[in-house]
Write a protein that binds this DNA or RNA. Sequence first.
DNA 1: ATGGTCGGTCTCCGA
Length: 279
Amino acid sequence: MREKAVKRACLTAACLKERGMLLASFNINGIKARAEALPAWMAQANPDVVCLQEIKSVDEAFPRAEFEAMGYQVETHGQKGFNGVAILSKLPLRDVRRGLPGDPEDEQARWIEAVVDAGRPVRVCGLYLPNGNPAPGPKYDYKLSWMARMETRVRQLLATEEPFVALGDYNVIPQAVDAAKPEAWVTDALYLPESRAAFRRMLNLGLTEAIRTRHAGPGVYTFWDYQAGAWERNNGIRIDHVLLSPQAADRLEDAGIDKAVRGGDKPSDHVPVWVKLAA
DNA sequence: ATGGTCGGTCTCCGA
């Protein structure tokens, strides 16, 4: 334990080469409600970088001091009541940007990015993609236009040929295998053909869907509804994703889902997903 | 076959 803590505190190039970089994403469904479960998971998983979604908090109300005391730099992009994203990092962050470009009228806090400036730098994009229900309707239109804006940003970042990771709650079930009961989702914005096609278009630009590379197959989910005993029945969907640019994918060592978190005390309806990159 | 839940707050809406 003690040895591990010392290792984690070490930011030299030699230490990074030895241990790589652990990046995670967790839709916490409210920072206040997760006041115990989130620090407990972080203390156990010890991610270098974690992107949070649905903090449901303004920046001033986010308990930053608690996470700073755990060794994290805290960058939030919050709003009152809904949405809200954050990046917490044990490694130094630079070039922090809040908001998805492409629509100055969009006031929803769903995108934050920053460059992790340690060893070989990696840009991290933390995202909370719109749910889009009910579909059709204005919320579905917003989802699809948001995804088009994200594709534009992804194309810009790909052109730099610098490694980046886009991780978060995508609110997209990519394939039938990613739902316990796909037939129940056929009219849902998370599974409609346009949503899936917009997600696939980004993959087809050359991104790697990291979780699928390690966990292909049925029964692998990241979200279980609070209703109807979904968790107990493993009636889940896989909607939290980690997409890697080609230069980040070169460094992929492992990827996973911390499924057990869903069975803990006062859980979010999502669980953390993570990737380990070589330094 | 069926009902059933949270979170933040806008005591309803979003998911």
